[in-house]
């Protein structure tokens, strides 16, 4: 394997010139995003820096309890973010998003790390944390899109749902259409990503592995696993969040509880 080229503080400072350039463009064109850009850049540095420090510690200690703890924190924030991205909300939305993220993480994460990759020991942070991080980060997009679409349907097209309920359709029958549409929406980004993989751009993880000196075919094998993993994660996550939201917003006796749905 080739020697890695290490990046030092000086290299990062040079890279910062590019963000400053983006800021200058914003000022020159009055885009009015320079403040947000600066804040976001700062957050990137601070957040990633902290993550790096924590990961170094966790990698050094290699204790399962820390790995599980970190995963729990990641799931917590992913669920919170998924719920926050929705423009409509209902009581319990955060719990449902959290449930969707946790279940996805558990099902897909276990399958990939323990069966496909076969990580030994089972909690090896070098594999478990980045892989589950990718599952969470990606299914977060799918889950929030799915949720947004589903709630939009129940709000803007509630009369269609009630029309079916009025003719005796059960909750499942009345919501089958909206749920299908929502889960399909949640799956769009990952389907697009799989279709375009390698043609439009090299996927981030594969690029990372190649930069880190891995043989391209190995990087490709990992990337394929990742893509399939993300497809599964998005489908499962979307299905869970749509079912959970459905149960909260339509009573078991088939009554739409629009009053629970707010902006």
């Amino acid at each position: 394997m080739n020697e890695l080229i290490h990046l030092g503080p000086f290299d990062l400072a040079v890279a910062a010139v590019l963000v400053v350039a983006a800021g200058c463009i914003s000022l020159a064109m009055r885009l009015d995003i320079e403040k947000r850009l600066a804040l976001s850049a700062l957050r990137t540095v601070v957040q990633l820096g902290l993550v790096g420090l924590i990961l170094e510690r966790v990698f050094a200690i290699r204790r399962p309890i820390f790995v599980v703890l970190i995963l729990a924190v990641m799931i917590f924030f992913a669920g919170r973010e998924a719920a926050r991205r929705s423009t409509r909300r209902y009581p319990g939305i955060r719990f449902d998003a959290w449930l969707a993220m946790a279940a996805t993480c558990l099902i897909v994460g276990t399958l990939v790390t323990q069966v496909v990759v076969g990580v030994k020991p089972w909690y090896d942070p070098q594999y478990v944390i980045p892989l589950l991080g990718m599952i969470l980060g990606n299914s977060l997009t799918g889950v929030s899109l799915c949720l947004e679409r589903f709630l939009e349907h129940l709000s803007a097209r509630k009369h269609e749902v009630e029309l079916m309920l009025a003719f005796g359709a059960t909750r499942g029958e009345a919501l089958a259409g909206p749920m299908r549409a929502a889960v399909r929406t949640g799956m769009i980004p990952v389907t697009n990503m799989m279709a375009a993989a390698g043609i439009v751009a090299l996927p981030g993880m594969m690029t990372g592995q190649i930069l880190a000196g891995a043989p391209p075919m190995q990087a490709v094998a990992y990337q394929i696993v990742i893509m399939f993993m993300l497809a599964g994660a998005n489908a499962i996550g979307s299905m869970i969040i749509a079912s959970a939201a459905a149960r909260r917003l339509v009573a078991a006796d088939g009554r739409l509880r629009s009053e629970r749905l707010g902006e």
């Binding site: 009630e162 029309l163 309920l165 009025a166 003719f167 005796g168």
Partner: peptide, 23 residues
């Protein structure tokens, strides 16, 4: 009972105000 409300709605059916349609 509340449990079999869908069944009730199948027998006591409302034509809703504004007559919505399905796509």
């Amino acid at each position: 009972t509340q449990k079999i409300l869908p069944c009730w709605r199948g027998a006591v059916t409302l034509l809703m105000q504004d007559s919505p349609v399905l796509p």
